[in-house]
C-alpha cells in the first residue's frame, strides 16, 4: 500500500509543480519548451540505447517457449503458429502476440477451495483489460496527430470520426477515453486487491499505472471540462515540431499538467518496464523459430580446443607402459 501511495504522491507532486510552473511567467518557458524537447531526446536516445544494447547480446541457440507440436516427421501435424519452424510462422506468432496478446489469453488463475482443493480456471479479465488499454492508448496517440500535423492526416481524421462515433455532447466524447479509464482502473485495482499480485507489485508498477491514469484524466479534463483553447495548443505544438517554439500566453493549468506528465512518461519509458514497447519484439523465447531438430545451430564462439587423445597419450608413454606390462591398444 505504501508503494501505491508513494507512486501516487510522486505523480501528484509532478502535476502540482507543473501547474505552479505554468502560472509563473519565467518558468513557463522552461516547462513549455525545454522540458518537452529534453524529454523527447531522452526517449529517443534512451530507447535507441536499450535496443542497440539488446541487439548486441548474443543469441546463439533457439530457445522458444512453445505451446504446440514441434515440426518433426512429415506425418505428424505440427503447430505452425504455436510452435513455428519457419520465419513466416514466427512473424504470425509475433503478430498474434503483439496485436492480440496471445500468451496472456492463456492466463489461468488458481484458487484454494474447500476440501482443500486447488482449482485452476481461465482468467481472461487481465487479457481483456490489457488489450483494451493498449489499443486505446494507440488510438489516443494517433488521434493526437490532429494537433501536431497540418493539414490533418487522413488516419487521424478517420480515427477521430470512429472514436467519436456516437456524437455525445460537445466536444464529442471519445470511446477510447472511456475505455482507457475503465481498463486502467481494472489494472490498478487488480494490483491492490489480489494479495499475491500486491505482494510482488513494486513502486514502478504502480507509478506507470498512476502516471498513465493521471495523463488520461488531465487530458480528458482539459477537453471536456476545462475546455482549453485547442487552436492555441495546436499552434504551440506545431511550433515545437518545426523548432520555432513560441511560448503560449497561458494555456491553463491542466494543459501544463498534461504536458509535464507526458514528458515524465516519455523520459521514464526507456528506463522502466514500459520499455517492453521495444522489448516485446526482441524476446528470444518468442521471436526464434523452433527448428532445433531441423538445423544445427553451432555456438559461434566455439574456439579450437586443444585435446590430447588416449591414442596420442599411449604413443607418448608406449615404452614405459610396455616395460611395466600394462595392456596396450597398439602393442
Amino acid at each position: 500500500m505504501t508503494r501505491l501511495l508513494s507512486a501516487s504522491a510522486t505523480v501528484l507532486a509532478i502535476a502540482l509543480a507543473a501547474a505552479l510552473a505554468g502560472s509563473l511567467e519565467g518558468v513557463r518557458t522552461v516547462l513549455a519548451v525545454a522540458v518537452p524537447y529534453a524529454a523527447f531526446a531522452v526517449l529517443v536516445l534512451g530507447l535507441s540505447w536499450r535496443v542497440v544494447r539488446w541487439s548486441l547480446a548474443p543469441v546463439p541457440f533457439r530457445i522458444p517457449t512453445v505451446c504446440g507440436q514441434q515440426k518433426s516427421l512429415p506425418w505428424i501435424a505440427s503447430s505452425r503458429l504455436e510452435s513455428p519452424h519457419t520465419t513466416a510462422g514466427v512473424i504470425g506468432r509475433m503478430a498474434l502476440e503483439i496485436l492480440a496478446f496471445r500468451s496472456l489469453f492463456r492466463n489461468t488463475g488458481s484458487r484454494l477451495e474447500r476440501g482443500p482443493r486447488l482449482v485452476y480456471r481461465e482468467a481472461r479479465w487481465l487479457w481483456l483489460a490489457a488489450l483494451l488499454f493498449h489499443w486505446s492508448l494507440l488510438v489516443i496517440l494517433l488521434r493526437h496527430l490532429r494537433l501536431l500535423v497540418e493539414p490533418v492526416p487522413t488516419l487521424a481524421l478517420v480515427l477521430d470520426r470512429l472514436d467519436g462515433f456516437f456524437q455525445v455532447g460537445a466536444p464529442v466524447v471519445y470511446l477510447s477515453d472511456g475505455l482507457i479509464l475503465v481498463s486502467l482502473t481494472y489494472l490498478l485495482q487488480r494490483r491492490v486487491r489480489n494479495p499475491q499480485v500486491r505482494y510482488i507489485s513494486l513502486f514502478t508498477d504502480y507509478f506507470a499505472l498512476v502516471l498513465l491514469g493521471a495523463i488520461a484524466v488531465s487530458g480528458m479534463w482539459m477537453r471536456y471540462f476545462a475546455r482549453a483553447d485547442t487552436v492555441a495548443i495546436k499552434q504551440f505544438a506545431i511550433g515545437l515540431t518545426v523548432f520555432r517554439p513560441a511560448v503560449p500566453a497561458n494555456l491553463g493549468d491542466w494543459f501544463f499538467v498534461h504536458l509535464a506528465l507526458v514528458a515524465t512518461l516519455a523520459a521514464y519509458l526507456p528506463f522502466s518496464k514500459l520499455v517492453h514497447l521495444g522489448g516485446v519484439f526482441l524476446s528470444p523465447t518468442r521471436n526464434l523459430a523452433n527448428n532445433n531438430r531441423m538445423k544445427r545451430h553451432l555456438n559461434p564462439w566455439n574456439y579450437p580446443v586443444k585435446v590430447h587423445t588416449y591414442q596420442e597419450w599411449e604413443q607418448e608413454f608406449h615404452d614405459k607402459m610396455a616395460a611395466a606390462g600394462l595392456p596396450l591398444e597398439r602393442p
Binding site: L47, V51, S55
Partner: peptide, 30 residues
Amino acid sequence: IIWMGLALFLVFLTLPAWHNLSARVSAKGP
C-alpha cells in the same frame, strides 16, 4: 534487422516534425 526496425520506429515517431518541416508549416494558425 533490429537496427532497421529501430530506425523505422524513430522515423514514425518523428514523422510530424519531418512533415511540418518539409511542408513549411508555420504556427500561424487558422
